[in-house]
């Protein structure tokens, strides 16, 4: 028979492994969503570079496809009780962020195309960083890494900003998602 200290250690061990399992499940789902967004924004920047006048339409399509894809991935890969409700809460939080972003960039800020191009990725990365405070450091690393590359692009990429953004924003998301699947 074991004493209460050993029993307590065993229960802590159980709690620890369950916590790690939950985090691993979140990483598995989130990494798919992040990779999908990486591919979508990469294509979005290339399309925007190729057809500049269609910029708003291109990004509207990218956003709609991305949101629909995120919901589909979260729904089909959700495991465990409450996964569906959790995905809906996460989506609602994301939509509130987007609404606030529109308020800042269009109503208050009147940003130009170049500022808009950098504001939205950095703003959505803030969402990732905040999510990381609850769901694991990988989100924070991806958010800070991507934001640093995007801000560098804003100051130094010049007229090649869209191509640079395709590489640093889309590429950082894809690489970040692949890395998340390995940890």
């Amino acid at each position: 028979m074991i004493d209460s200290q050993q029993a307590s250690a065993a229960l802590n061990d159980i709690n620890d492994i369950v916590h790690r399992l939950r985090q691993s499940q979140i990483y598995q789902t989130a990494s798919l969503i992040i990779i999908m967004w990486g591919v979508l924004v990469f294509l979005g920047y290339i399309a925007n570079y190729t057809w500049p006048p269609q910029g708003y339409a291109i990004w509207a399509v990218v956003d709609l496809v991305g949101i629909a894809g995120s919901i589909a991935i979260a729904t089909f890969s959700g495991t465990g009780p409450g996964a569906g409700a959790f995905a809906i809460r996460l989506l609602m939080a994301f939509l509130l962020f987007i609404a606030f972003g529109i308020f800042c960039s269009v109503v208050l800020g009147h940003f130009g195309p170049r500022q808009m191009l950098v504001f939205w990725p950095v703003f959505t990365m803030l969402f990732y960083a905040l999510a990381g405070l609850w769901f694991g450091y990988a989100f924070i690393v991806i958010a800070l890494g991507s934001s640093a590359l995007i801000v560098t692009a804003y100051f130094y990429a010049g007229p090649a900003l869209l191509l640079w953004m395709a590489l640093v924003h889309g590429g950082a998301l894809v690489l970040g998602g692949l890395w998340m699947r390995r940890i």
Partner: peptide, 22 residues
């Protein structure tokens, strides 16, 4: 009584992870 098969630390972790799944 404690289950001697599950009580071993690695087997306890295996069972804890599997039990947390649907």
């Amino acid at each position: 009584d404690l289950d001697e098969i599950i009580h071993q630390p690695l087997r306890l972790r295996i069972m804890a992870a599997l039990n947390a799944l649907p």
